[in-house]
Amino acid sequence: MSPIVSVENLSKSYASGTVALANVSLDIEAGEILALLGPNGAGKTTLISIICGLVMPTSGRVIVGGHDTVKDYRAARSLIGLVPQEISIEVFETVMNSVRFTRGLFGKRPDDAYLEQVLQSLSLWDKRDARNMELSGGMKRRVLIAKALSHGPRILFLDEPTAGVDVNLRRDMWQLVRRLRDDGVTIILTTHYIEEAEEMADRIGVIDKGRVMLVEDKERLMRQLGRKQLRMELQEPLAAVPDSVTGRGLSLAEEGRVLIYDYDTQAERTGITRLIADLAQAGVSVRDLDSRQSSLEDVFLSLVEERGS
C-alpha cells in the first residue's frame, strides 16, 4: 500500500540563512500514529507547516493521498486537519460558530449533526454557545481539535498537543487520539515529551537539527536500542572496578557503593552469570540487585549525542 503522506527530499532555508530542514524524506502510512520527536527548534513544526501549506519549501515535494501539496493543493489540503501549537482562536465567536466556520473554509456543506458528534466526543457540546474567550486553556485546545476535525479529515496533525496541559487532560487527549486512529484517521503528532511518544505512537521519527535521524517502529526501536542496566549495591565500597572484570561495560557510581553493568538484551548471552561468579571470585560481595530497561528517553539522548558528536 502506498503511503498516505510522502515527503520527498524536502529542504527549507529561511532568508536569514537558517536551515530548518535539510533534505528530509519520510513516508507516513495510512492509519498509523507517528510521533515526531525532537528538541525545540529541531524542525518538527517546519515539517508539519510545509505539509499543511503554511510554509513554502525551498526544494523537494510532499504528496498527500496521491496529490502534490503545491500543484494540487485543493485535493491535498482537504484531506488534512491541523491543530497548531499555539492556541489561536476567534475569541469573540461561539464554539459552534468557530467550528462551522472551519468546516465552511474547507468547502464542506453545513452539517450540524456531524459537528454535534465531534463536539460530543470532545465534551464540548455543553459549551457550544459559549464564547471562546470564556473557555479555559484546555477547553480552547479542544476547540482547536474540533475545528481541525470539523471537515472530517483523513490525516490529523497535532503540533505539541499536550504542551502546557495538565495530566488529566493529557490522558483524555491520548484517549481521543487512539479513538480517532480506531476510526481510521492517520495521526502525526510532534512532541518533546518522550513519555508521550512512548505511550501513544506506533512509529517514532526522531528529528534533530533539520534532519530525520531515524524513523522506526516503536517496539523495534525499543528492542534494538533498548539496553538493560543491572545495578549492584555493594557490601563494601570499591575504589575501582576490579581488574578481573574490566572491559565488560562496568562502571562505578555513588562513590563506589554501586556497580553498574550495561548489557544488551538482544545479545545471545547477557554475561550476567559469568560476571557474578567473577565478582565473587574477586571478593566483591553484592548486597542487592536491581535491573531496569532503558526508556525511549535514554535511547533518544544517546542518539542525539552520538550523531551530534
Partner: peptide, 11 residues
C-alpha cells in the same frame, strides 16, 4: 491573533 493558519491551510 494567529487564526490565519486556517485560511492558509484551507483548500
Amino acid at each position: 491573533i494567529g487564526t490565519i493558519y486556517e485560511l492558509l491551510t484551507a483548500p
